[in-house]
Simulated assay, not measured.
Amino acid sequence: MILHGYWRSGTSYRTRIALNLKGLAYEQAGVDLRAGDQRSDAFRALNPQGLVPALETADGVLTQSPAILEWLEERYPEPPLLPVTPADRAVVRAMAAAVACDIHPLNNLRVLNAVRALGGEANAWAAQWITAGFAALEVMIARRGGGFAFGDRPTLADCHLVPQAYSAERFGVDPTPYPHLMAVVETACAHPAFADAHPDRQSDADA
C-alpha cells in the first residue's frame, strides 16, 4: 500500500495510526499542502477532491480517512478497532465523528485560509471549535473510557482523537479542562503505533 499524505495533516495522521495498529506495511508519498501539491494533475488523478490522504491498495485508490479506516477494519479485522456489540460500536463511531465531522473540518488548512482571507483570526477560529468538541468528548470519555477513549484498547476513536489533540496544541488550546481526554492522549502516545505515526517522525516533516 502507498499512503499519499502530508506529515502534519490530521487525516493523514489518523490513517497512519490505524495502519500501524493493524500491523500493515505501507509506503508513504508526501503531498506538500503548503506548496499546493494536492492541486496537481498527478494527485487529482488519485483523488479528484484534491485532499489528503489517498491510499493506494489492491482494491483501488481509497479516499476520505473515515472510509479508509472503516475499510481497514473490514479488510483486516485483527486486531479490531471497533468493540463487539452494535451499541458499543455506535459509541466509538460517535466519538470518531465528533472529531471527523464537527471539529477537524473547521480547522483544516483550506478553511483556515478562507478565514484569513475574510479577515478573521484563524487560530481563534480553530480553537473555538476544538474547545466545543473537546468539552463533549471529555464527558463521553469519562463515561466510557478505560485507559483509551473507549475501554482499555485502542479504537477508531483514539485514531481520531490523538491527531486532534496535536492540532489543539498547535492552536494554543488549554488542555486543563479535559483531564480524561488528555489522559487518554498520554496513554495512546506511549503506544508504538501512535508514536511511530507522530508528525515529527515522518520523512517529509519540517527539520
Rank of each mutant, 00 (worst) to 15 (best):
L109S: 05
P179G: 13
F148M: 05
P79S: 10
R34V: 10
P77R: 00
L19W: 08
A42R: 14
E169W: 01
D200E: 15
R153C: 10
A207I: 04
T131Y: 04
V91E: 03
M140Q: 14
E70I: 13
L109N: 09
A122E: 12
R16N: 08
V184L: 04
E138Y: 10
A94Y: 09
D204F: 01
E73Y: 09
W129L: 09
Q64N: 05
A35N: 04
L62S: 14
P177S: 03
H198Y: 02
R44S: 01
Q64E: 15
A114T: 12
A25D: 14
R93M: 02
A157V: 12
I130T: 07
A124F: 05
A114I: 09
T176M: 03
R144A: 13
R116K: 15
P48H: 11
D41W: 01
T176Y: 03
A42N: 07
L156Q: 12
D152A: 15
D206R: 12
S203E: 13
A90W: 07
A97R: 08
A157G: 10
A168Q: 07
W71L: 09
T11R: 08
K22Q: 08
T187K: 05
P48D: 11
P192N: 11
T187Y: 00
S9K: 06
A157R: 04
T11A: 15
A183T: 14
W7C: 02
R39E: 14
A132Q: 13
H191Y: 02
T131M: 08
V184C: 11
A136M: 09
I17W: 04
A157T: 13
